[in-house]
Structure formats: structure tokens, C-alpha cells
């Protein structure tokens, strides 16, 4: 089956899935106690009945549920994600404003976790009962089980307060003047701690998985053959074995993309990182239905695309896997 057919079939499934996600979430938000009028009144320190009724009229919240749902889906079909109730700004605009920050954070944390995790896992697998292996296991477990906001705050205290080498919060320092190079460095400088914090959760998963998978592979016949024909240890481990051990790691990486929004909420909050996670959280507590639906719509898209990409990557690292071949 060609890549094109795969894309078409997956696209169809994806659309149906998107619609289901939207209807389900619309229903959930609609049935959550309180609405955006309550939140706006709360934000403003109070409001009278007339003001609240006006807010509900303005946003069509006084209309029956099915009318609201149909209106929303209709607009979406025309490519319009609507207006955020809370911010009075087009949802698409807000999404695009926040997306780069989240992508930068999540992707860099993933790359760091995959690379470091794989290396640590391989090192641990080579001497499964050695001190180093146990060290990696303990380190990984700590990173995984510590609440991510706690890790974040600890890193802030350590590297911003006790040894003040990193900035406390935000993505840029607006007082920094200079060209794009200086500004990029400034962003990377701000990125470091949140990236490490977010990577700490994934690192555990990847290193444990890489270790287990590597142990499996190292015990197979072809590795023994490679060793027998006199290849160096490095070549055996990193060229022959690692390639086959990477499969599960890639699967996991693909799955992790579903957490692109949810996984980053806490880290974004602790580091005041202006991404989608904080926006999503804020929008849910504000009952800002169009904003929440916009974010969910977008993250569903990301998951669907990520799964597709994962499949394509499989075929690259393991030619035995054929695209679209369902065994």
C-alpha cells in the first residue's frame, strides 16, 4: 500500500475522530457546573444579574444546547474556530500565539529525553547488574515519581536562588536588546530549566524501555554472530543491536505526543512559560468553551499526525515493517 492511500485512509478516520472528540467535549463543558458568565463575574469582583444575563446573551449561552452545538460545528466546518469568550480574541489567533512556545518546550524536552534516555538505557543494559545500571534505574525512578511541579520548583530554588545562573520565569527577557542571535540565545537560556524539568519525567520511561529492549536484543543470535565475527564492542552495541532496540522507544515517543498539551501544563505554570498548557488550564476553569474546544481540536490533530509520523519512522528504522501492512 502506498503512503498516499495510508494518508487518505488515516485522514478519514481522523476526521470522524475529531468530530467525536468535539461533540463529546462540547457536551462535557456544557454540563460542567457554572459558565463563563460566572467566571467573568468572579474575575471582576462581582456583577449584577443584568450584566450576567447580557454576557450570556452576547455569547449565545441562553440558547438551547443543540442550537449552540450546531452553530459551533457549522462554524468549524467553515474553518472558523470562533472567538474566545474570556479574551474576546479569535481562538485561532490565540492558539497560534501560544503554539510555538509549547512546541519548543515539548519537542526539546522529548529530544533531550530520548537521546539521553537511550544512551543511559544502553549503558545500563551492557552491565545489567553493575553499579551504573542501578544508578540509572534509581535516577530514572526518582525523575519519574517526583511530581513535575516539585522538580521544577526545586530546580528554580537551586539554579535561580542558591546558584543564580538561570532566570526564574518567562520565555524572554524584554530588557534584552540585540539582534535575532542574542534574542535566540535569550530564549534558549530561559528554555533550559523548563526543558530539563519536563524531560525528567520522560527520561525515566525512555531509559527503562531502552534498557529492557536492549537486554532482549543483546541476547539474540545475530548479536552473538556479530561478536563472533570479531566486530568491536562499540559496533555490535551501537550499530547492530541499538537499531533493533529502538523500536519500542519510537513507539513510546509517538504516544507521548498525545500529552503535548496536558503534560506541559504544570511545567508551563511553574516556569510561567507562555504555552498552550497554561492557556488550556485557564480556559477550562474559565468555562471558555470555544477556547477549550479549539485547543482540544488542535491537540487531537497533533495526536493523529504524530501517530502517522510514528508509523513512517518505524519503516525507516526497521525495513521489515511495511507501511499500512496490518498483520
Amino acid at each position: 500500500m502506498s503512503v498516499l492511500t495510508l494518508l487518505v485512509r488515516r485522514g478519514g478516520n481522523g476526521l470522524a475522530l475529531l468530530l467525536a472528540v468535539l461533540v463529546l467535549n462540547f457536551t462535557l463543558i456544557h454540563n460542567a457546573p457554572g459558565d463563563v458568565a460566572d467566571t467573568i463575574a468572579g474575575d471582576m469582583g462581582g456583577a449584577d444579574a443584568e450584566v450576567m444575563a447580557q454576557i450570556r446573551r452576547d455569547y449565545g449561552l441562553d440558547r438551547p444546547f443543540h442550537e449552540q452545538l450546531l452553530a459551533y460545528v457549522g462554524k468549524l466546518a467553515r474553518g472558523d474556530l470562533g472567538y474566545s469568550f474570556f479574551f474576546n480574541q479569535p481562538v485561532t489567533e490565540l492558539l497560534l500565539e501560544r503554539l510555538p512556545a509549547t512546541l519548543l518546550l515539548v519537542l526539546s524536552a522529548q529530544v533531550l529525553a530520548i537521546m539521553l534516555g537511550t544512551v543511559l538505557g544502553v549503558i545500563a543494559a551492557r552491565h545489567p547488574n553493575g553499579l551504573l545500571s542501578h544508578g540509572v534505574t534509581i535516577f530514572a525512578l526518582l525523575g519519574f515519581s517526583a511530581p513535575v511541579f516539585w522538580t521544577g520548583i526545586m530546580l528554580i530554588i537551586l539554579f535561580c536562588s542558591i546558584f543564580p545562573v538561570f532566570p526564574v520565569a518567562g520565555m524572554i527577557d524584554v530588557t534584552v536588546e540585540g539582534g535575532w542571535f542574542v534574542k535566540t540565545l535569550d530564549v534558549l537560556y530561559h528554555l533550559f530549566l523548563p526543558m530539563v524539568t519536563l524531560a525528567s519525567i520522560f527520561l525515566a520511561l525512555y531509559s527503562r524501555l531502552a534498557r529492557a529492549s536492549m537486554l532482549d536484543v543483546l541476547g539474540t543470535d545475530y548479536v552473538r554472530t556479530a561478536q563472533a565475527k570479531g566486530l568491536s564492542e562499540f559496533q555490535v552495541v551501537y550499530k547492530h543491536a541499538l537499531r533493533n532496540a529502538l523500536g519500542p522507544v519510537v513507539t513510546l515517543a509517538g504516544l507521548q505526543f498525545s500529552g503535548i498539551v496536558s503534560g506541559a501544563v504544570l511545567v508551563e505554570t511553574v516556569f510561567s512559560w507562555p504555552g498552550l498548557g497554561t492557556l488550556a488550564f485557564q480556559s477550562i476553569t474559565a468555562r471558555d468553551a470555544p477556547m477549550v474546544l479549539g485547543i482540544l481540536f488542535f491537540s487531537s490533530l497533533v495526536v493523529i499526525v504524530a501517530n502517522l509520523v510514528t508509523d513512517l519512522v518505524y519503516s525507516l528504522i526497521d525495513p521489515r515493517i511495511r507501511i499500512g501492512h496490518r498483520g
Partner: peptide
């Protein structure tokens, strides 16, 4: 005037302690 929006209270504390 630069108003920095920092939602985490402990981050705000450290920022003002550091003179940021």
C-alpha cells in the same frame, strides 16, 4: 514599566529576591 505576569507564587518570590 514592565509588568511580568508570573503565576507561580514561589517564582515571584525568587524573582523579587534576586532583583529580577
Amino acid at each position: 514599566i514592565i509588568m511580568r505576569i508570573i503565576k507561580d507564587p514561589s517564582s515571584r518570590t525568587i524573582a523579587v529576591e534576586k532583583g529580577e
